[in-house]
């Protein structure tokens, strides 16, 4: 490395140093130290005490850990396909030529801009069994005894899923951008060949925007496993642990019970789950995702 190259390297490093400092301090160091803590009894106030695999063994024996894992998988398995169907359908509708299209696009995007805390409080009222707008409409539609959404262990998880569908604006915008990249010429050719709308969607549009679909689903999977704010604000994990999602339980262990070692082992298990699913998705994507380039 000559003097000029060295100077350039130093300048480059200086320019990105705020990021490097932030990354090392707030990501890399906690990330690596959590591996060590996951093998320790660590309450943050006293030095960590090495206990080997005890945290992992206790975790697998912990009934609430399995409940939180079940709740999280339940959410992911129901929410991901549902959110895909809803956001893709809305993106297709918003891609048509109708009057007031910009207005509709804004309407569907606006909920994304509302902070999650405010949104959760709003939905608390919408799900209210006595005065909630949701039950008001259900009664109007002829449902005699609509559910007490968040007060009933059977309906609390579905309620959180319904609420999640409210904030699909981001995914819709990404799908919309993908849809607008589909060459008009291909769709017009299909029209000339007599293709129906569903032929165009499943045989032209979907394959062409498959990288966009893959990206959105992958991000949804990662975000869904980290569901926290809604149950934390709306239910606190109840009723009867029905909304104790994985990250909420991790938070309770770390910041309410001061079991940082236990929480670190939970974090690593979640990391492995998400990593495996991501690698699996990438493997599938090689066969199913079409990259035009």
């Amino acid at each position: 490395m000559n003097k000029s190259e060295r100077n350039n390297l130093i300048k480059g490093l200086l320019f990105i140093s705020p990021w490097i400092i932030g990354f090392v301090t707030f990501v890399l160091y906690p990330f690596l130290s959590s591996i060590y803590y996951s093998f320790c009894h660590f309450n943050v106030f006293e030095p960590p005490q090495w206990i080997g695999f005890a945290n992992y063994i206790n975790l697998f024996k912990d009934k609430v850990f399995w409940i939180s894992l079940y709740n999280t998988f339940f959410y992911v398995i129901i929410f991901i396909p549902l959110s895909f169907i809803v956001s893709m359908t809305l993106a297709l509708l918003l891609n048509t030529k109708v009057k007031g299209l910009s207005f509709y696009r804004i309407i569907f995007y606006i909920p994304t801009l509302v902070p999650m805390v405010a949104l959760s409080i709003l939905w608390l009222w919408m799900f209210n069994g006595e005065y909630g707008i949701l039950n008001h409409f259900l009664i109007k539609m002829g449902v005699p005894k609509p559910p007490n959404w968040l007060a009933d262990p059977r309906y609390a998880k579905p309620a959180i899923i319904i609420m999640g569908l409210w904030t699909l604006g981001q995914a819709i915008i990404i799908y919309l951008a993908g849809l607008q990249d589909v060459p008009r010429s291909l769709l017009e050719s299909a029209d000339i060949d007599g293709a129906k709308w569903y032929h165009k969607i499943f045989h032209i549009i979907m394959p062409l925007i498959s990288p966009v679909i893959f990206f959105n689903i992958l991000m949804s999977v990662i975000i869904s496993f980290q569901l926290f704010a809604q149950p934390f604000i709306m239910t606190g994990g109840g009723p009867g642990r029905s909304t104790t999602f994985y990250l909420l339980y991790l938070y309770q262990k770390a910041f309410e019970d001061f079991r940082m070692g236990y929480a670190s082992s939970m974090a690593w298990i979640l990391f492995i789950i998400i990593l495996v699913l991501t690698l699996f998705s990438i493997k599938i994507s090689k066969k199913k995702v079409y990259y035009g380039g």
């Binding site: 209210n128 069994g129 006595e130 005065y131 909630g132 007490n148 007060a151």
Partner: peptide, 8 residues
């Protein structure tokens, strides 16, 4: 009844 009343 109790759940509905309480939720209000």
């Amino acid at each position: 009844n109790v759940k509905k009343f309480s939720s209000g």
